[in-house]
Simulated assay, not measured.
Amino acid sequence: MYEHLKITTEGGVCTVTLNRPEVYNALNDTITYELQKALKDIGKDDAVRVVVLTGAGKAFCSGQDLKEASIDENKSFMQSLNKRYNPIIRLMKGMPKPIICKLNGVAAGAGCSLALACDIIVAAEEAVLTEVFVNIGLVLDSGSSYFLPRLVGSTKAFELSTMGSRTNGKEAYELGIVNKVVSGSDLDGAVKAYADYYANAPTKAIGLMKKMLNKSGNASLDDMLEYEAYCQEIAGNTHDYKEGVSAFMEKRKPKFSGN
């Protein structure tokens, strides 16, 4: 079905693997359009309650495939971003399900942006995040200028982006970029722990909280108080809310269905 993606779903966990290991999962036209389609389909699939995004081989994603880009010297950067990259980021942030980044190796340029667009990042110690745009005379894109300063502050974001600094897993954890850092051999288990939790969590409530937190960065307190009330009305009418209350009253662990 896909040329450059591997997608498997088991127990409510959908794993999307960027699959161009021979070029460190660099992004060409085909894989970006495939990723857009996959994210749209996953967003509509009620059987999926959490997404894991990772890369095949040694890398997570090395960013734009520069060899392919150099073939068309007349290609518009703005057009490429608006058609290929920006829809991916919007789909990721708009998906009403958590997305976990399994950061198994280097995430560079737009690949770094893909990682930052995830809701949870679990990194191997040897993984590297780097905003390499400056090394070829370009600027941040695919959402990095939005995500990075919100994670590390404006001055650190300026340093990381204008110097193209390489940040390993441990450093990224200390900066607050990633949620957890583990040895490479422990990465699968650490990601599974998060995925298993979200696969059994109240999915609609998680999705609403994702929307709320995304909105809060550019909203006033009054805006958020109103939006909280709106979202709570929706959450309070779900099956999972009723199950959560019943489980509390019966002193048992709730069995959330995601509805």
Rank of each mutant, 00 (worst) to 15 (best):
D196Q: 03
Y173S: 05
T162E: 13
N214Y: 08
K75C: 06
D222F: 15
S183H: 10
L81P: 10
G137P: 04
N82D: 10
R84V: 07
Y198C: 02
F60P: 06
R252P: 03
Y24A: 12
S144A: 12
E126Q: 07
L27E: 07
D223E: 05
I71R: 09
K97I: 05
N237P: 05
R166S: 06
K102W: 07
D119V: 10
C14P: 00
A199M: 02
E228G: 11
V245R: 07
T30I: 14
N74F: 11
L66E: 10
L213R: 15
D223R: 11
A123N: 06
L116F: 11
R49P: 05
C14L: 06
K67I: 14
G43W: 00
K210A: 06
K156R: 10
D72Q: 09
P202R: 04
Y146T: 12
L138G: 13
C231V: 11
L160S: 08
I42V: 08
N214T: 11
E171V: 15
R166W: 07
G189E: 00
K6T: 02
A47I: 06
A199E: 01
F77E: 11
I100F: 01
G143E: 06
C231D: 07
E243M: 12
K40R: 15
I120T: 07
K251E: 09
N135F: 14
Y85I: 11
V48R: 00
T17W: 07
S216N: 05
T9L: 11
C61W: 06
N259R: 11
D65S: 03
K102H: 09
V181I: 03
K37F: 12
R252Y: 03
A38V: 11
S80N: 14
G143A: 04
N135G: 10
A124Y: 09
G184S: 04
K37I: 08
G176E: 08
A247D: 03
T155S: 15
K93F: 09
A124S: 15
P202K: 04
V152A: 03
N19V: 02
K253N: 13
V139H: 13
N104F: 02
C112G: 10
D186A: 10
R20D: 01
N237R: 04
V48Y: 04
I136C: 13
H239F: 12
G43M: 03
M92W: 06
A190W: 06
V23W: 15
S144T: 08
G207L: 03
I88E: 01
Y227P: 04
L81W: 13
P87I: 02
A235K: 01
K156Q: 08
Q64L: 14
K204L: 13
L53D: 05
Q64H: 11
Y194L: 07
C118Y: 04
C112K: 14
K67S: 11
I88H: 04
G189D: 09
E131S: 13
D72L: 09
A107Y: 00
N168K: 09
L5N: 05
Y230L: 11
L27Y: 10
K251W: 03
N74L: 15
K93Q: 10
M1F: 14
T155Q: 15
A190E: 05
G137H: 01
F158T: 10
F60Y: 01
K255R: 09
V13I: 07
A108F: 12
A26R: 13
L175M: 02
Y173G: 06
N25L: 12
